[in-house]
Design a protein around this nucleic acid. Sequence first.
DNA 1: TTCTTGTCACCTAGGTGTTAATAT
DNA 2: ATATTAACACCTAGGTGACAAGAA
Lengths: 229, 229
Amino acid sequence: SVQLEMKALWDEFNQLGTEMIVTKAGRRMFPTFQVKIFGMDPMADYMLLMDFVPVDDKRYRQDVFLSHRYAFHSSSWLVAGKADPATPGRVHYHPDSPAKGAQWMKQIVSFDKLKLTNNLLDDNGHIILNSMHRYQPRFHVVYVDPRKDSEKYAEENFKTFVFEETRFTAVTAYQNHRITQLKIASNPFAKGFRDCDPEDWPRNHRPGALPLMSAFARSRNPVSSPAHQ
Amino acid sequence: SVQLEMKALWDEFNQLGTEMIVTKAGRRMFPTFQVKIFGMDPMADYMLLMDFVPVDDKRYRQDVFLSHRYAFHSSSWLVAGKADPATPGRVHYHPDSPAKGAQWMKQIVSFDKLKLTNNLLDDNGHIILNSMHRYQPRFHVVYVDPRKDSEKYAEENFKTFVFEETRFTAVTAYQNHRITQLKIASNPFAKGFRDCDPEDWPRNHRPGALPLMSAFARSRNPVSSPAHQ
DNA sequence: TTCTTGTCACCTAGGTGTTAATAT
DNA sequence: ATATTAACACCTAGGTGACAAGAA
């Protein structure tokens, strides 16, 4: 059996409609797909892998409010038509594969090397997805059968686990501002975009440090760092 | 068979008398011990590991020149007496162990997670060495015998490789200034101490950047970074 | 005196959302 | 109009030798 790690965080994202950025170079997922595994044969070899299947055959587009004179981006999705041609159905093997059951079970298994791309010609082995389409991550456990006619037993030698709360829409830029804010609040690498962090602010506060700029005041050129200019 | 990577660099260090820093928290080796492996059974499982054996039973001390009025640190070593009591003889398993021969052979095997410490009570699994003592790194390949009476064959199921050019003296601070300079010149993480780097200086040069301070002018307190103060 | 320790500035390496410019 | 790209400031995480202070 398999237990999804950080389920509470996944639920929070899922409630808003999770979005995952895809880039040409490949982008990690956040939250990272992580699981605890139980009930393996400690001595047997297993391969662990993930793939991503379309949730439907639709293409989405961002919703827009039409006010009296202005248009506002909404946080909901409209169906924009039929899905684009399917992407190459790649899989991502956990880089520790193959390994013994004991190895897999003794700690959380993290797919933090997995990257998503929208580049159909990607040759880095990343997972290729269509932007503006919805996907369901799947987790597969494959028992490495030592018998030499193991192909015959392929059907019974693997097991698939699906956590619906990990569904997401692939995007090249966030569509829902609340998703952006939740990513900023929960991903350590986005700490630079937090307007304040009540949690550990007094601890880390250095009196002379430059104040964090608000998201609105931020712009690229006018801000110069004295150490670099 | 096994081939030492970066042999030219190891030779250069060895000619000067390689020194490796040991710290309480654990310090990586530089150069890193890396090998290419040939002739494994691609389908069989192997464990790869390293250990460190004393080269002799001596303790060393730094040499000093006595000039007319002053004493200068030399770059040679004097025997200071008999070795201190032996440290716990730990081994470091390559973290990918066990893995198939095919996996090990398809790329360079790097022991960059291995750390050296002088803390006899270390509980991070690091290699414990006595400072001011000389050591010979050893590399071991263990075939994981599938037979259930595999203990009987332990003798024939492993092979040890020794590269004499990887010998070094464990130190808590560098004794030979030329070793320090070679480390600075060849370790990317020490780039901050290079006085100049003719190789790619024009490329990386930013006109407004603070100039690198020379080794002599450097001191801790008078230098303040405007971004942090 | 000689060796060890802890802290520091300065790096490498790479993961974030932002933004302006460019496609479509 | 909407979607994508590429450069960027700002982080996390952690590997360097220098240095001052401490220990033996």
